[in-house]
C-alpha cells in the first residue's frame, strides 16, 4: 500500500516538475478561450491560433467553450486564478461580459478579444480587438463589382438602363450580416456610378445553403431575366444559389454575376468550374496578429482598439492558382 502511495506521489511530482520546466522554457503564458468547432472556418481559426502560439514560443492554455458562454466565463476565471500573462477569447455573444472582465482587470491581466464583437459598459475592460472587418468586406464587394462591370462593360440583360442586383442576406441581426450590408450600401451610395445599379430584391438566407437556394429560386421566379448580379453575404448561400440558377436554365457567373464573402474551399471550386466570379476573403488566420499584438501589449506599447487582419479579394481567373494554398 505504502509502495503504491509513494509511486503515485512520485509520478505526480514528476509530472509537475515536467510541466513547470516546460512552462519555464516558454516566454509567456496566455489563456485562450475558443467558442467551439461549429464550422471549417472556426477549425482553421483554432488551428492557426495553436500554430502561431508555437511559433511565438508561448505557453498557450487553450480552452474549448463548446458553444456556451458559461464555459467561457469559467475558463476566463480559471485563467485569472492561474495568473496568466494575458487572456484572449472569442466572445460567443456580445453581452454579459462586464463582471468577469472586471475580475480580470482587478487582477491586472490584460484582455484581448478575437474575431467577434462585444459590448461592455466600460471600453477599458479590454485592451483591443483582433478580427475581420465585415464593413470593409461589404465595401470590397461593391468595389470589385464596380470594377468588373466597368472592365467588362456589363449591360443589363433586360435591356434597361440599370443593372439589377439581388442580395442574399445573412442571419438577421448578426454582426457579419449587418456590417457587410452597410459596407456595401455605403460604397454604393458613395460611388460615382451609383445610378448604374438598382437593388431589385434583398432577403435573408440565414447563411445556409438550403435557404440561399430556396430564396434564390424565388428571386428567379419573380424576376428571371432582370437579375444581372447576385451578392451573397456568405459563400454557402452563393453555392446554394448557383444550383437554383442552373436549375432555371441560366448560366451562373455568365448570365448572373456572382460575388460573395468568406473564401471557403467550395466557392474556389465553383470559381474554377466557372460558376462564380469572386469572393472577398473573411480571414480566419488571426493567430499571428493576435500574438504579435499580445506581445506589444505586454511590453507596454500602445495598440489601436481595433486591429484588422488582412483580407484579399479572389477572382475566378486566379482561383485555380490560389486553391492549393487555401487552408480552410
Amino acid at each position: 500500500m505504502k509502495l503504491v502511495k509513494t509511486l503515485v506521489a512520485a509520478s505526480i511530482a514528476a509530472v509537475l516538475a515536467a510541466s513547470v520546466s516546460t512552462a519555464m522554457a516558454k516566454d509567456l503564458t496566455i489563456g485562450f478561450s475558443q467558442i467551439g468547432a461549429e464550422s471549417e472556418w472556426r477549425t482553421a481559426n483554432t488551428n492557426d491560433v495553436k500554430a502561431a502560439a508555437q511559433r511565438h514560443n508561448i505557453n498557450l492554455k487553450f480552452s474549448d467553450a463548446q458553444q456556451k458562454q458559461e464555459n467561457q466565463i469559467k475558463a476566463i476565471r480559471t485563467f485569472i486564478a492561474q495568473k496568466v500573462d494575458l487572456i484572449g477569447f472569442v466572445p460567443i455573444v456580445a453581452t454579459g461580459w462586464d463582471n468577469i472582465l472586471r475580475e480580470a482587470k482587478r487582477a491586472k491581466i490584460p484582455v484581448l478579444i478575437m474575431d467577434r464583437d462585444l459590448s461592455v459598459s466600460d471600453d477599458s475592460l479590454y485592451v483591443a480587438k483582433i478580427g475581420t472587418d465585415s464593413y470593409t468586406e461589404g465595401k470590397k464587394v461593391f468595389n470589385w463589382l464596380d470594377n468588373y462591370v466597368e472592365k467588362n462593360n456589363l449591360k443589363p440583360r433586360d435591356g434597361g438602363d440599370k443593372l439589377n442586383i439581388v442580395i442574399l442576406e445573412g442571419t438577421v441581426g448578426s454582426s457579419a450580416a449587418t456590417g457587410r450590408a452597410h459596407g456595401f450600401d455605403d460604397a454604393l451610395k458613395a460611388s460615382e456610378h451609383k445610378d448604374r445599379y438598382n437593388i431589385l430584391a434583398s432577403q435573408t438566407g440565414d447563411f445556409t445553403r438550403q435557404k440561399g437556394q430556396e430564396v434564390m429560386e424565388s428571386f428567379i421566379k419573380s424576376y428571371r431575366d432582370k437579375i444581372d448580379i447576385l451578392f451573397a453575404h456568405n459563400d454557402d448561400m452563393a453555392l446554394g444559389a448557383i444550383q437554383s440558377i442552373e436549375a432555371a436554365g441560366l448560366k451562373p457567373a455568365k448570365d448572373i454575376v456572382i460575388v460573395s464573402v468568406d473564401g471557403v474551399k467550395g466557392i474556389f471550386q465553383a470559381m474554377i468550374d466557372g460558376k462564380a466570379n469572386a469572393t472577398v476573403e473573411c480571414n480566419p488566420l488571426q493567430g499571428e496578429l493576435f500574438f504579435e499584438t499580445a506581445k506589444k501589449i505586454l511590453k507596454g506599447e500602445k495598440v489601436p482598439k481595433s486591429v484588422f487582419v488582412e483580407e484579399g479579394v479572389f477572382t475566378s481567373d486566379k482561383a485555380a492558382e490560389v486553391f492549393p494554398t487555401r487552408k480552410y
Binding site: 438577421v172 432577403q203 435573408t204 438566407g205 440565414d206 430556396e214 429560386e217 421566379k221
Partner: peptide
C-alpha cells in the same frame, strides 16, 4: 412557405 418567399416575406 413558397407563397411567403414569393411575396417577399423574409425567411426569418
Amino acid at each position: 412557405t413558397t407563397t411567403m418567399y414569393a411575396v417577399g416575406v423574409s425567411s426569418d
